[in-house]
Amino acid sequence: MDGSDEQEAAFYAIIDADGRIEPRDDMPEAYRRSLVRQIAQHAHSEIIGMQPEGNWISRAPSLRRKAILLAKVQDEAGHGLYLYAAAETLGVSRDELLDKLHTRRQKYSSIFNYPTLTWADVGAIGWLVDGAAITNQIPLTRCSYGPYARAMVRICKEESFHQRQGFEALLALTRGTPEQKAMAQDALNRWWYPSLAMFGPPDTEGGGAKRSTHTEQSMRWGIKRFSNDELRQRFVDMTVPQADVLGLRMPDPDLRWNDERGHYDFTPPDWDELFAVINGDGPCNAQRIEHRVSAHHEGQWVRDAASAYAAKRQRHLEGVA
């Protein structure tokens, strides 16, 4: 968009009518850049998120659970593919974005910088992390950028399936032996606060003006519909009754229903820890990137072979024609 008033007016007319911006439409450069960053970060989270769960594929305790987990990790790879494709409609290639991930110039969700120490962590990730992802992403099915919104429709369907499966895996543990139940409680203790942190910093405190400006801008553009705190509250309200069904204790002594607000009160995560993890100081940051980069490096000769082969076939076809 060259910034002409007419084009800008056309863009905001679509936004204001709750319509969809499509790749061929003019859009402000700042809108495009902001979407690229958001979609890329989302895509990176899908593929980095394969690692903590992939960690348990070889050791899943029953063949049924192994099949469910394999299918789930496969879905996450598929989500990565849809999202990189959505980003490509904005004029950036998957290679460029992967390069930014590998060189830590783009981020992914910090939740995946925690380790999966026991089998119960796989259930906890499905229940809490996919649950938080759904809470974040359902509003994005109505976001203003068409390809992103459509990718989110497909992804949300699968994420809600993952969430139910995670819950069910934990239920099997809490109804099992004392050791299994303890494993489930331990997983909840470790994953609860990191899951709350998935919604980002609080809207009002500790951040200063910069964050809220960013949020306001995203809301104006229709790529964010609810504030971080609204979404976090929604997640807590949805999850607490599910913990009761599981028979697990939330690791928060101050968590209780507030009749006046019509919501649960809860202790927010430790934001200092969150920022430390975001900035590279989590238990697995280095490991996750190192794993990704080494897979990418080791695959280079394979990708090169595939392109060389395709080029040869192309030349061959042209020669014959």
Binding site: I47, M50, Q51, G54, I57, S58, K66, L70, V73, Q74, A77, G80, L81, Y84, H291, A295, E298, G299, Q300, V302, R303
Partner: peptide
Amino acid sequence: GEWITRAPELEED
């Protein structure tokens, strides 16, 4: 299954 997260490209995962 050992290949998953280590494949040469996402399509192969």
